[in-house]
Amino acid sequence: MNSEKIFRYLLIGSGVLIVFIALGIIATLFVGAIPSFKEFGFGFIYSSDWNPTQGRESYGALPFIIGTLVTSILALLITFPFAFSISLFLGEYFKNGKLPSFLRSVIDLLAGIPSVVYGLWGFYALRPIITDLGLNAQGFGIFTSSIVLAIMIIPYASSLGSEVISMVPGSLKEAAYSLGATRFEVVKTVIIPNAGSGIFAGYILALGRAIGETMAVTMLIGNSNRIPTGIFDLGNTMASLIANQFGEAEGLKYTSLVEIGLLLFIITGVVNYIGKLIMKKLSA
């Protein structure tokens, strides 16, 4: 009896604590961003000027919002065919056996590699290839970052997908086969409609991860605080900017960085919300 109560209070306590911490973080960001908002208003969001020189200080988030969205969406597009194939391979075609379990461990391994190691790999291995292909003079930029991001998010995009694909009821598939459907037709008409929302949820999770990724991007994107003119141009993302400039920031620059953090938080929230809406539509 007593232990039941304690257990309950513990559960309630830890649940409430998490809510408080989350609200506290949002409150801190809000309070920290107020001076910047007072100075620049909504212009902060669409201004492309980032000038930290004293006396000429002017901050705008647009280059970083664009950089963040372009790198992560491009990464998701690159990762999509791979993640989807892996999901199908592991969820439907080869559920058991040595090869699939080996593949599964390799994908788990990808998720476990620290992002700074991805950055190193991109810097020393991928960059020379990009330069040799003549895509861009120094090998840095949005495209290079997106490729590395795409590899980083494969585990997130594929594992949830393979999970839900393997959970599609066997009776449905068997019914389709008995009607003479080929395997491809089963995938198209039974598996995708059934597992669609779960597969999609995986992509949203992956996109969220790509939006927040910092270290690997910092090392590869070129950190130019201008609006990129194309996918092979240099750029910068919100997370990378904060990581770079936080150390020596003070005054207006500090509060502008906090506002960037708040915007990043909002963007991630909006992306997750849109994802949930689409998932609802798909599963309805």
């Binding site: 980032w50 004293q54 120094q138 090392m219 605080n225 240099l234 400039q245 020596e248």
Partner: peptide, 21 residues
């Protein structure tokens, strides 16, 4: 046009983190 500071608005170039970067 650029001025003095710990971080600047650069007209050209690539940014890298730290001396090692």
């Amino acid at each position: 046009n650029i001025g003095t500071g710990k971080a600047l608005q650069w007209p050209v170039g690539i940014g890298a983190k730290g001396n090692p970067g």
